[in-house]
Simulated assay, not measured.
Amino acid sequence: MGLFDLEKHFAFYGAYHSNPTNIVIHMIFVWPILFTALVLLYFTPPLFKFSSIELGDQSVLILNYGFFLTIIYALYYVGLDKKAGFLAAFLCLICWVGSSFLAHRLGYTLAWKNLALPYVLLKEKLHVWGKCCERAIPNFVYQKGYSCKSLFCLYWGLLVVLVSQLICWTGQFIGHGVFEVIKRAPALLDNLAQAFLMAPFFVLLEGLQSAFGYEPYPGFHARVKAKVDAEIKEWKDKKQNKLS
């Protein structure tokens, strides 16, 4: 299966996502997974010596692993299909910028108003912890001006991000286990590259097809449907042979 063979990749994806409810579930959850992953990657070190984009007096946009991942996704989607690919690349860029701003604010404001009491109760421990772990925290974190109070909020913010990841992945597994007529393992277990790299583009393509009847080229969806039907039939035959 060629890396840029959109028809084969989309047919493989379609064979695992044939139920409309499961398709909608993936449309809802796939892009938030990418967004929250970029929030986590925001706290990775810069790739170059001068890797920040100044906005006012603060460095919000950092050319780090999150940016590198965004570029890979964007270029790959454009390589799959220029029209939908450019839209997907733009959405990836929006996710990177939005996640950068959110991550930048995590250490300052997120959950602070709701967590004022726990902070007061843990204030002494936080100061002790802050001094003890100062050497272990990367320098670029301190360069951002994080105090113990900020790190406390950062902790809760990242916890929210991780919970979001858990909810999104759980929702997709439920979509496969509950709504798909053909009970087979999610594509994640058979094709990691598709699950992490191609899924955002495929759910966008599903949305464009449903809303506007978009096709990368004439006859695309007819060919994909034929391949999906053949893939499902092959899977059923293999399962039947194992049972017999």
Rank of each mutant, 00 (worst) to 15 (best):
G79S: 06
K227N: 06
L55S: 10
S150C: 15
I167W: 08
L34C: 04
A84K: 02
Q194N: 08
H17I: 05
L243V: 09
W112D: 09
W112I: 06
K49W: 08
P216N: 09
I94L: 15
S51C: 06
Y65M: 09
Y108V: 05
L6T: 06
S59H: 10
A187R: 01
P20R: 07
V203N: 02
E231Y: 14
V60H: 02
Y16L: 05
H176Q: 11
G219Q: 07
A222L: 07
I72S: 05
K225D: 15
L80A: 03
K8P: 00
N64S: 06
F140K: 11
A103I: 03
A116N: 12
L117N: 14
Y13F: 14
A74W: 01
Y142Q: 13
K49L: 12
L34M: 09
A15Y: 01
W31T: 00
D81Y: 04
E231L: 09
L208S: 07
I62Y: 00
A226Q: 12
L166G: 12
Y73R: 01
D190P: 01
P216K: 07
P46V: 09
V181P: 02
E231M: 11
D229P: 03
A103V: 07
F220R: 08
S52R: 11
D237F: 08
E206W: 04
D5T: 09
L91A: 11
L80P: 01
L69K: 01
I62S: 00
F212G: 06
F90K: 06
P32T: 05
L61S: 02
W96D: 02
I232G: 06
Y42E: 03
I71H: 01
A15C: 07
L154E: 02
R105C: 08
N114K: 13
W129L: 14
N191R: 11
R223W: 05
H221S: 10
A211C: 13
A116S: 14
A226N: 13
N22I: 02
L80K: 04
P118N: 09
D229Q: 13
I174P: 03
L6M: 07
L40I: 10
F35E: 01
K236T: 11
F152P: 00
F212V: 11
R184E: 14
Y217G: 04
C132H: 14
Y108D: 03
I174M: 11
W31S: 00
N19C: 02
W129Y: 08
G130D: 04
F4Y: 14
L91F: 13
F90S: 14
L126W: 07
F101T: 06
Y146I: 12
G98N: 10
A103T: 07
F140W: 14
A230C: 11
S59V: 02
D237G: 04
L75D: 06
N139D: 14
F12Q: 00
A226W: 04
M1R: 08
D5G: 05
W96E: 05
V78I: 15
V160S: 11
A74D: 04
L69N: 01
L151D: 02
W235C: 08
L197E: 04
A185D: 10
F35Q: 00
Q172H: 09
E134V: 13
P138Q: 13
E206M: 11
A195E: 03
F10A: 06
F4N: 12
L75W: 04
W156I: 08
E7G: 07
I167L: 15
